[in-house]
């Protein structure tokens, strides 16, 4: 993980840097305990005390409980599993103060499926694996059919998370429902429980498995995908940390997606980069949720396919080969 480039990141990213510092300290503590030289740093409640063998060069660091401590440079060692541990605690904490929300404007979708391509590329998915899929839907025989991009709804009352026996999938404070693929036992209860069919499974060796086998696992990207575990849309949590819009949102050529923070009452369009007020957008355009009667409280809103920008194209979804 590199956070050296401090250029100009939004505050979420600042928080993340703070968290990464805290984690570094935590890992440092673990590493310190491991070094049995007797002169190593003592780790007690997150506070370090510099010992005999000092380099004279010390650094002030922030501990996990928010205290500033001075640590000798000699004691600072990178922890071997830092990436993994960093990833786990960072992931579960989410990005503080945020409540991510997505608005999908159906009147602009022409089923270009550019979002899907970007998503499958980013998450290393096979062609038949979708974190996001556009479906052709006709609500009643008399109403017009439309294309609807359907991803994980990141529900505030997530039925999938409730049934997980091992805390492998969890809800974050910032609203994202994430999966820890190193924890998932592959029971697929979450898939059965999801009314939106948003979850997929790595039935076989994931795409390019050999190529990525040495790559460090990133729970905010679900990459590398892991055999025998569940995967799904994660609102591109890795991108959000960097202040960037999700892969699908920025890939859309037609301005379908808005993404933002409900706490800021704003969403940004992935195509035009125009930022608008969430409450006004939903009010003026009749925003709605998918199957709200199920009480799942989705974090994805839809704007109805009214005054469409493109004529509806009836697509006979040709399916990829048998897998």
């Amino acid at each position: 993980m590199e956070y050296n480039n401090n250029s100009h990141l939004p505050d979420g990213a600042e928080n993340q840097k703070a968290a990464s510092r805290r984690n570094f300290l935590k890992n440092l503590g673990l590493a310190g305990v491991g070094v049995a030289t007797g002169a190593a740093a003592l780790y007690s409640g997150g506070i370090f005390e510099a010992k005999k063998e000092v380099s004279g060069d010390s650094k002030v660091l922030l501990t996990q409980d928010g205290k500033l401590v001075r640590v000798d440079s000699l004691e600072i060692k990178a922890h071997e599993k830092s990436g993994e541990e960093l990833s786990e605690s960072l992931c579960r904490g989410g990005i503080p103060g945020r409540r991510w929300v997505m608005v999908t404007d159906l009147s602009k979708c022409r089923n270009a499926r550019r979002c899907i391509a970007a998503c499958q590329e980013a998450h290393q998915l096979r062609p038949e694996q979708y974190h996001l899929n556009t479906l052709q839907i006709q609500d009643t025989p008399a109403t017009a059919p439309y294309h609807i991009p359907k991803n994980c709804q990141h529900c505030d009352n997530p039925p999938c998370v409730a049934v997980c026996p091992v805390d492998a999938t969890y809800k974050r404070p910032d609203g994202i429902v994430l999966i820890e693929n190193d924890r998932c036992i592959g029971c697929r209860f979450c898939m059965a429980a999801c009314p939106y069919s948003a979850r997929i499974f790595n039935w076989l060796e994931p795409r390019d498995a050999a190529k990525y086998q040495d790559k460090e696992y990133n729970a905010e990207l679900n990459v590398p995908q892991k055999l025998g575990t569940v995967s799904k849309c994660l609102f591109s949590a890795d991108r959000l940390r960097e202040g960037e819009l999700p892969y699908c949102v920025s890939a859309c050529p037609n301005g379908v997606y808005y993404f933002g923070d409900e706490n800021e009452d704003s969403v940004t369009n992935g195509t035009t980069r125009e930022t608008v007020r969430l409450s006004k957008l939903l009010r003026d355009n009749g925003g709605y949720q998918l199957m709200p009667e199920l009480g799942t409280k989705p974090r994805v809103y839809y704007l109805p396919p009214k005054n469409r920008l493109f004529p509806f194209e009836n697509i006979n979804p040709e399916t990829p080969e048998k897998v």
Partner: peptide
């Protein structure tokens, strides 16, 4: 999908599931 992780049900078990 991951039978070798059976023990996780006891290690990380959630009373809600």
């Amino acid at each position: 999908g991951r039978p070798e992780r059976l023990a996780y049900v006891f290690i990380y078990g959630r009373a809600q599931s």
